[in-house]
């Protein structure tokens, strides 16, 4: 899918309710990669940690800045891989995170 196909009013990041238009605005404000977008408009900061929206954000970046997918970067991989209660984490059940 090309990012032209992503309409401005589409919710790209559902966790944080960020539209494609807001992501394009972040790019106009200087964001050049996934992390730059995230810091400006919170896309990817919600419960799913960008697992769903990252690809769309990358596509919009490619389109707007005429860059390749690799240059759009990825958000830093950080544990836990999926949400885990602090109680389990404290008990050391985090070893397979």
């Amino acid at each position: 899918m090309s990012s032209k196909g992503i309409p401005d009013d589409m919710l790209v990041c559902r966790c944080e309710e960020i539209t494609a238009d807001e992501i394009r605005q972040a790019i106009r404000e200087g964001a050049r990669d996934v992390t730059g977008v995230k810091r400006r408009v919170r896309a990817g900061m919600g419960l799913c940690q960008g697992r769903i929206c990252e690809k769309f954000v990358q596509q919009i970046l490619c389109q707007e800045l005429h860059m390749g997918l690799v240059q759009t970067g990825r958000s830093t991989a950080r544990p836990p891989v999926r949400p885990v209660p602090f109680g389990e984490l404290a008990r050391g059940c985090g070893n397979d995170l």
């Binding site: 940690q49 950080r78 209660p85 109680g87 984490l89 404290a90």
Partner: peptide, 25 residues
């Protein structure tokens, strides 16, 4: 370190036990 931070947090806010951690940094 994540484990130790969670443990120490629960010492002061026991209700954290049931709240989800989504990320570390």
């Amino acid at each position: 370190a994540m484990q130790a931070i969670a443990e120490r947090g629960i010492r002061f806010y026991p209700c954290l036990k049931g709240i989800n951690c989504i990320r570390s940094y």
